[in-house]
């Protein structure tokens, strides 16, 4: 599937959503309020206790905004196709994708690209702008590069996690709880990872490398540490995203093969 064809899918999807403009905008507003409440709780927490493991509010805000921003970008691509996959397998609508002469992964993502993450982007973008302006960051070409790479790579990590969960639907269906668990796991990476035990740190670094979307690069930017792994691994962030996304894509494709073999 060429980028132009993918973009054609996304444009149609956008126009489809615009058919229900009112509901769409209200949805953005409602989600915005939801995330604002989350930010408010963390702010209240820091307001009362000043710091968590030495991380002050602007620094925690950086973690939070990175987590929401990368999730929003990643989920725009893979959330809808992967959550709907379960139903598509059950109802057989996945077959309409499989009779197309295009890559099923990209066809599905294109068809179901979710443009509803605008309020996430706005909110996370605003918080992040404030956070990087306030937090003690030494701006060098390297740190700027790292931040940009973190947004891109982190989004891929988030998209990849959702893809892996979606793959589950091929075999076991009922992936809903797993998506909820992923929501829970995302809360780990909104705090300094060092406060969690060894097992969560290993899992979030080596198994589901979500910590590369927020903590490791942020720790380099603000020169903090206190985690199990050495601080320099944050520089691996630009590589982790593409590699993990590739793994997820391959796993998903194998899931499709298995589906074709077993017949659902």
């Amino acid at each position: 599937m060429t980028p132009a064809l993918f973009w054609h899918h996304v444009r149609l999807r956008l126009r489809e959503r615009m058919e229900y403009r009112g509901a769409f905008l209200l949805g953005l507003l409602a989600q915005g309020i939801g995330y604002a409440a989350e930010i408010a709780v963390i702010w209240l927490l820091l307001h009362r206790f000043e710091a968590i493991a030495g991380w002050m509010w602007p620094e925690i805000a950086l973690l939070y905004s990175l987590s929401v921003l990368t999730y929003a970008i990643g989920a725009a691509f893979t959330y809808s196709p992967m959550t709907e996959l379960e139903q598509m397998v059950q109802r057989g609508t996945l077959e309409t994708v499989l009779v197309k002469p295009t890559d099923p992964f990209w066809t599905l993502i294109g068809q179901r690209f979710n443009v509803g993450y605008l309020s996430h982007l706005l909110l996370a973008g605003t918080v992040m702008t404030w956070a990087i302006a306030t937090a003690p960051i030494d701006w060098t070409p390297a740190s700027v590069g790292l931040l940009v790479a973190t947004v891109a790579s982190g989004s891929m990590i988030q998209a990849a996690v959702l893809t892996l969960i979606g793959t589950w639907a091929f075999r076991f269906t009922r992936s809903w709880t797993l998506f909820a668990i992923n929501g829970q796991a995302s809360r780990f990476i909104r705090f300094p990872i060092g406060i969690f035990g060894i097992i969560p740190q290993i899992l979030l670094t080596l198994v589901i490398p979500l910590a590369f979307a927020t903590y490791y690069p942020a720790a380099i930017l603000i020169s903090e540490d206190g985690q199990l792994f050495p601080g320099w691994i944050g520089w691996l962030t630009p590589v982790v995203g593409p590699v993990f996304m590739w793994v997820a894509y391959r796993t998903w494709t194998r899931g499709i093969d298995r589906y074709q073999g077993a017949g659902g």
């Binding site: 927490l45 206790f49 968590i52 796991a185 809360r187 406060i195």
Partner: peptide, 18 residues
């Protein structure tokens, strides 16, 4: 069960740190 335990693990760690 895992879902609930994760919530507990996260919150407990935060309060231990605080």
């Amino acid at each position: 069960i895992l879902f609930g335990l994760l919530a507990i693990v996260i919150q407990a760690a935060i309060w231990r740190a605080l």
